[in-house]
């Protein structure tokens, strides 16, 4: 009990003696975590959106004339022979019109003058959900264009490609901010600890002469780093949550956020980021302790 009390008291003493530097360190750790977590949050949401878009992927073959009912199984077989497909749906002009009409709901009156057969018939091909490879989608698309009466194939692969490129770019940003986080946290904590050690040099020397054990001298410094990591990560994540709430409240309703079902980190991931912050700062402390304290 006394041991713990001494360690905590010593940690408090260290924090008080270099409070200015400690505040700056806390801010740096907070900002580093905020920056990393911000990009990481966007990235995880993009990944989820990307997975969902992949799940919703379908290839639409627009036809210049309807396929007769008796020929449909033959065409479906051709499609299934080319690649793994979940389902193939033949959409007639009338069905297409009914769907559009249902989508327009109260504004379906705009279709009154157009007639029920102004839309082209089509075949909707739903590939299996594991088909996320853009090259394969493109090949599938090229094949579908060779089907009888096929006029145009809409696969959404261009959009998917651009989305994929953006996600890859974001991945690089997340990696870079992660590296920045690691460097800044370990460096700044190590530097702060060094200042603590320098400011208490005389005292540490006397403690050594009085027989202070390694634990008595080192544990408070280690705890200081841990505390900085915990507080900095907590504040960074709390700031991100507030930012997320603000964005969610400002941009709620139909729009970008709804499209992507923008969500905050799940509790496990939040805890993992917090833990990573604590581990990094403790690592920085350890580095300084090993380097600057000789007992």
């Amino acid at each position: 009990m006394h041991f713990l009390a001494y360690i905590l008291r010593q940690t408090g003493k260290n924090l008080r003696q270099t409070w200015g530097t400690q505040v700056m360190t806390l801010l740096t750790v907070t900002l580093s975590v905020l920056l990393f977590a911000f990009f990481f949050l966007i990235y995880t949401n993009m990944l989820r959106a990307s997975a969902r878009l992949g799940d919703d992927l379908r290839l639409i073959v627009y036809l210049d004339q309807e396929i007769p009912e008796q020929k449909r199984p033959e065409i479906e077989k051709k499609i299934r022979d080319f690649g793994p497909v979940e389902k193939v749906v033949f959409v007639s002009r009338t069905e297409a019109f009914s769907r559009l009409s249902a989508q327009l709901d109260k504004e379906k009156d705009v279709l009154n003058d157009l007639g029920p057969d102004f839309l082209p018939p089509s075949i909707e091909v739903y590939p299996l959900k594991n088909l996320h490879d853009l090259t394969k989608i493109s090949q599938f698309s090229d094949f579908l264009l060779t089907l009888p009466h096929a006029a145009k194939v809409q696969s959404g692969s261009d959009w998917l490609r651009r989305f994929g490129d953006f996600t890859s770019l974001l991945q690089v940003v997340v990696l870079l901010s992660g590296v920045l986080l690691i460097i800044s946290m370990t460096f700044i904590i190590s530097y702060t600890l060094r200042l603590t050690v320098v400011s208490r040099q005389g005292e540490l020397e006397i403690l050594r002469l009085l027989g202070a054990t390694s634990a008595y001298i080192r544990l408070p410094l280690l705890l200081e780093g841990m505390l900085q990591g915990f507080l900095g990560s907590s504040l960074g994540l709390a700031a991100l949550y507030l930012l997320y709430q603000w964005i969610a409240s400002r941009f709620s309703g139909p729009g970008f956020l709804n499209l992507f079902d923008f969500a905050f980190f799940p509790p496990e991931l939040t805890a993992a980021i917090l833990l990573a912050g604590v581990v990094l700062c403790t690592g920085g402390s350890l580095f300084s302790i090993r380097r600057f304290i000789r007992i």
């Binding site: 027989g211 202070a212 054990t213 390694s214 007992i295």
Partner: peptide, 8 residues
């Protein structure tokens, strides 16, 4: 070293 500290 730890023993020396305890001795001190």
């Amino acid at each position: 070293p730890a023993g020396i500290q305890r001795m001190r």
